[in-house]
């Protein structure tokens, strides 16, 4: 860390204190910077409470994979274009590669690891197997997280609507017809 980094962080920590109008430790304000520039965040993943001290540059995707060892969520393009990193935050599907984990304080997260109930697969997981909705499988966790959300959103009324609602998830193997079938099976 350079001295420039240090002074910048000190400036910002002071400004944060000024913003809440008192001189108590930063921890009163979730997401506020610690003296070392790290940020403390607490959230739940698949029902389990987690607490991390993170460099604010870390994405949710990297935190899930590298810190919490939840490697089911995949890193495809890492720039918000492929959907492989799709997870649910407070029940909504989002891209974990474009989400800073520092913004996740107090959130409820679900990843692909959180769908099955013990050995019983989620109906969407079972449908992807039954319909052969994948080849290499790399995009599949993101496809399934999106499909679960599509069904919850009620946007699976026709093949056309399913294709549009699933358009944020790219499959380089081209398993799209079977993915649509899987969403239809899970719908019924």
């Amino acid at each position: 860390m350079t001295s420039g980094d240090l002074s910048r962080r000190r400036f910002f920590a002071q400004a944060a204190v000024a913003s809440v109008g008192m001189t108590v430790p930063m921890s009163v304000e979730p997401g506020a910077p610690e003296a070392d520039g790290l940020v403390e965040v607490a959230f739940t993943v698949n029902g389990k409470g987690e607490r991390l001290r993170v460099d604010p540059r870390i994405t949710l995707l990297d935190a899930l994979r590298e810190r919490l060892e939840l490697t089911g969520t995949k890193k495809g393009c890492d720039r918000g274009q492929c959907g492989a990193c799709t997870v649910h935050v407070d029940g909504r599907r989002v891209l974990s590669c474009l989400t800073l984990v520092a913004t996740m304080d107090g959130k409820r997260l679900t990843t692909i690891e959180g769908l099955a109930k013990g050995d019983r697969l989620h109906p969407v997981q079972q449908a992807f197997i039954d319909c052969d909705g994948f080849q290499c499988g790399f995009c599949t966790p993101g496809q399934i997280m999106s499909a679960v959300a599509v069904l919850r959103e009620g946007h699976a009324k026709s093949d056309e609507e399913i294709r549009e609602a699933m358009s944020g998830n790219i499959c380089r193997c081209g398993a799209y017809p079977n993915i649509v079938e899987a969403v239809k099976q899970a719908r019924s």
Binding site: A13, E29, G31, T103
Partner: peptide
């Protein structure tokens, strides 16, 4: 590297903002 803050109020956010800062919403 950057500093991160998540203020609760508009006035607090504006006090932190200026040259070299960026507001983060959806990201």
């Amino acid at each position: 590297a950057f500093d991160f803050a998540a203020p609760r109020g508009i006035a607090g956010a504006l006090r932190l903002a200026g040259d070299g800062s960026a507001f983060l919403a959806g990201g």
